Amino acid sequence: MIRAHLRKINKPGMKTIKSPDGDIIDCVLSHQQLAFDHPELKGQKPLDPPERPRGYNSSNETNEVFQPWSMSGESCPEGTVPVRRVTEEDILEFHNISTFGRKTIESSITNDSPSNGHEYAIEYVSENAFYGGKANINVWAPRVELQTEFSLSQIWIVAGTDGVDLNTIEAGWQVHPQLYKGDRQPRLFTYWTKDGYKGTGCYNLICPGFVQISKKIAVGSAITPVSSYGGHQFQITLLIWKDPKNGNWWLQYGGELVGYWPSVLFTHLKDHATMVQFGGEIVNSRGLDGSHTSTQMGSGHFAEEGDGKASFFRNLQVVDEGNSLVPPQNIKLSAQHPNCYDIKQGFSQNYGNYFNYGGPGKNPNCP
Rank of each mutant, 00 (worst) to 15 (best):
4 A>L: 14
5 H>Y: 15
7 R>S: 14
8 K>C: 04
10 N>W: 09
10 N>A: 04
11 K>P: 01
16 T>A: 04
19 S>G: 07
23 D>K: 12
24 I>Q: 12
24 I>M: 11
26 D>E: 15
26 D>M: 07
26 D>H: 13
27 C>I: 06
34 L>K: 07
35 A>C: 04
36 F>H: 10
37 D>P: 00
37 D>G: 00
42 K>W: 03
46 P>Q: 11
46 P>V: 06
47 L>C: 01
50 P>K: 12
51 E>W: 02
52 R>F: 14
53 P>V: 10
60 N>M: 12
61 E>G: 00
72 S>F: 02
72 S>Y: 01
75 S>Q: 13
79 G>P: 09
80 T>L: 09
84 R>L: 13
84 R>W: 04
86 V>G: 01
89 E>M: 07
98 S>Y: 04
103 K>A: 13
105 I>W: 04
107 S>W: 08
109 I>H: 13
111 N>L: 02
113 S>T: 14
115 S>L: 15
118 H>V: 00
121 A>E: 06
121 A>W: 05
122 I>H: 06
126 S>H: 12
127 E>G: 14
129 A>H: 11
133 G>Y: 12
134 K>H: 10
135 A>I: 02
136 N>M: 02
138 N>G: 01
140 W>D: 10
144 V>R: 05
144 V>C: 07
146 L>A: 13
150 F>D: 02
151 S>C: 09
158 V>N: 02
160 G>Y: 08
164 V>T: 00
164 V>Q: 09
165 D>W: 10
167 N>K: 03
168 T>R: 07
169 I>K: 04
174 Q>K: 12
177 P>H: 07
184 R>A: 01
185 Q>G: 13
185 Q>I: 03
187 R>M: 06
192 W>I: 01
192 W>K: 04
193 T>V: 09
194 K>Y: 13
195 D>F: 07
196 G>N: 13
198 K>Y: 11
198 K>L: 06
199 G>K: 15
202 C>F: 05
205 L>C: 05
208 P>W: 11
209 G>C: 06
210 F>V: 05
210 F>M: 10
216 K>R: 10
221 S>H: 14
222 A>V: 05
234 F>W: 15
241 W>G: 03
246 N>Q: 10
249 W>G: 12
251 L>K: 02
251 L>Q: 05
254 G>R: 04
255 G>F: 06
258 V>I: 15
259 G>M: 13
261 W>Q: 03
261 W>S: 04
262 P>I: 05
266 F>N: 09
266 F>S: 05
266 F>G: 06
267 T>H: 15
268 H>M: 01
269 L>W: 08
271 D>W: 09
271 D>E: 15
274 T>S: 15
275 M>V: 01
276 V>S: 08
279 G>L: 12
279 G>A: 08
281 E>V: 04
284 N>V: 00
290 G>I: 08
290 G>Y: 12
291 S>Y: 08
292 H>L: 09
297 M>N: 01
297 M>S: 02
302 F>A: 07
306 G>M: 14
308 G>P: 03
309 K>W: 09
311 S>V: 00
318 V>L: 11
319 V>Q: 05
322 G>L: 08
329 Q>G: 02
333 L>S: 07
334 S>N: 14
335 A>W: 12
338 P>Q: 12
341 Y>D: 04
341 Y>W: 14
344 K>T: 02
348 S>K: 08
350 N>F: 03
353 N>Y: 14
354 Y>D: 03
361 G>L: 07
364 P>A: 09
367 P>D: 11
